[in-house]
Amino acid sequence: MQEAAKRFGTPLYVYDAAELDAALGRVHSAFGDARVYYAMKANPNLHLLRRLLAAGVGFECVSSGEMARAEHVGATGEHIIVNGPAKSAEEYRAGARLGATFVVDREEEVDLLPPGSRALVRVNPALAVSTHDHLATGAAQSKFGVSLAQVPGVLGALRAAGHTALGLHVHIGSAIRDADDFTAAFGRLRELREVTGPLQVLDAGGGWGLDADLSGIAREAHATAAHFGAQLWVEPGRYLVARAGTLLTQVVGTKHTGRDFVLVDAGMTELLRPMLYGAEHPVQALWEASAQGVWDVAGPACESGDLLARAVPLPTPTPGALLAIGEAGAYGAAMSSPYLTRSRPAEVLWTGQEWQLLRRRETPQDVWAAELTAAETPSAGC
């Protein structure tokens, strides 16, 4: 990683091809013949998408932009699922043109689908789950899905409107720590069998914690799919890419106020999850020193919440030393921001033999490229 930092600068997103392949291998090993769709929002880098499509993985898309990425790498038809609670007219048109499967998130959506659509009905099982509130999509108070009681009516409405009602979809959240949460969700779905009849597809979503009992979750998911006579689909996102990615950042200096801070050149604009969800990422010092201390890792933004980690044991930092922030392959680059007109970092891949540049570092000119200067702004006059 020292070599990558010297060649490409910092902050820098670094991906490991071997771990990408290993994560997909774990999913296939656990879920067997289930159809896999990658939740693109975790990391939409085109190189990663091409690798996954070549391995037979489809894409779950939640915007017209993500559908455009899927089409750009060659995915169409059954390789695309269109999800989201508030789809636009443009997104319905794009999904129809690509032959995608739509996830119906509310009763009224049946009337908005393009004619003859394939659809799944997203079920909200109304469960409290072991994750941050902002990530709990299957909670009763969340904005996602239809209630258990609404499911038969939505399936019937889809069929009456001439659509193909493939089956049910459930995704209870992300970074879920307790595998029993999935068992509870599948149990509530199985109660619907008497009113739905047999189905073609059960989409069990994703959201598995990185250390989850994947085999146990897969057994429950397959059993639930079999209960409906359905094929199992799954939608891993973070699980596939988080551990494959590292955010490299360089020490700028230290500061001692009410706490001891190591100041680095990456922050909330490069890794938002700690500020947004209170997420904890592993931190590794890529230097050695005899003295140790406990440090908060602070970024450069003029925001009190711009902290990548708190109370991390580290050797005494020196300017120019490198820190590796782990599990940054998901929602690092994807959520990166040009706030403060900061240039988004480069993304590189270690192939096992060489560093491959996947995305160049932005320049300030890239950040403001879409803005119109006074000379370019159309006149508002008559």
Rank of each mutant, 00 (worst) to 15 (best):
Gln2Trp: 09
Gln2Cys: 11
Ala4Gly: 14
Leu12His: 01
Ala17Trp: 03
His28Pro: 10
Asp33Lys: 11
Ala34Met: 08
Ala34Ile: 02
Arg35Glu: 06
Val36Ala: 08
Ala39Pro: 12
Met40Asn: 00
Asn43Ala: 06
Arg51Phe: 00
Leu53Lys: 07
Gly56Ile: 10
Val57Gly: 02
Glu60Ala: 15
Glu66Thr: 00
Arg69Phe: 15
Val73Pro: 03
His79Asp: 15
Pro85Gln: 09
Glu91Trp: 04
Gly95Pro: 01
Ala96Gln: 09
Gly99His: 10
Gly99Asn: 14
Thr101Asn: 13
Val103Cys: 14
Val104Ser: 15
Arg106His: 15
Glu108Ser: 15
Pro115Ile: 02
Ala119Asp: 11
Pro125Thr: 06
His132Tyr: 14
His134Asp: 15
Gly138Ile: 00
Gly138Tyr: 00
Gln141Pro: 09
Val146Lys: 02
Gln150Phe: 05
Gln150Glu: 09
Gly156Trp: 00
Ala157His: 12
Ala160Asp: 06
Ala160Cys: 01
Ala161Pro: 01
Gly162Ser: 10
Thr164Phe: 05
Val170Ala: 14
His171Ile: 03
Asp181Pro: 07
Phe186Trp: 07
Gly187Ile: 00
Arg190Pro: 07
Arg193Trp: 06
Val195Asp: 12
Thr196Cys: 12
Gln200Thr: 13
Leu202Asp: 12
Gly207Ser: 12
Trp208Asn: 08
Gly209Arg: 11
Leu214Arg: 13
Ser215Lys: 10
Ser215Leu: 10
Ala223Val: 01
His227Trp: 07
Leu232Ala: 08
Val234Gly: 11
Val234Lys: 04
Arg238Met: 06
Ala242Phe: 00
Thr246Met: 06
Gln250Glu: 14
Thr254Cys: 03
Thr254Ile: 14
His256Trp: 02
Thr257Ala: 14
Asp265Thr: 09
Thr269Met: 12
Leu272Glu: 07
Pro274Met: 00
Pro274Trp: 03
His281Tyr: 05
Val283Phe: 10
Ala285Tyr: 02
Trp287Ser: 15
Ala291Tyr: 02
Trp295Phe: 12
Val297Leu: 14
Ala298Cys: 14
Ala298Glu: 13
Ala298Phe: 04
Ala298Leu: 10
Gly299Ser: 05
Glu303Ile: 07
Ser304Lys: 11
Gly305Asp: 03
Leu307Glu: 03
Val312Pro: 12
Pro313Asp: 08
Leu314Phe: 06
Pro315Trp: 11
Pro317Cys: 11
Thr318Ala: 15
Gly320Cys: 03
Glu327Ile: 11
Ala328Ser: 15
Tyr331Pro: 05
Gly332Asp: 05
Ala334Ile: 03
Met335Gly: 06
Ser337Met: 12
Tyr339Glu: 08
Arg344Ser: 07
Val348Met: 13
Val348Asn: 13
Leu349Val: 11
Trp350Arg: 01
Gln353Arg: 10
Glu354Trp: 05
Glu354Ser: 14
Trp355Ile: 08
Arg359Asn: 13
Arg361Glu: 09
Thr363Ile: 00
Pro364Arg: 02
Ala370Phe: 07
Ala370Asp: 13
Leu372Lys: 09
Ala374Lys: 13
Ala374Thr: 10
Ala374Ser: 10
Glu376Trp: 01
Ala380Glu: 01
Gly381Gln: 15
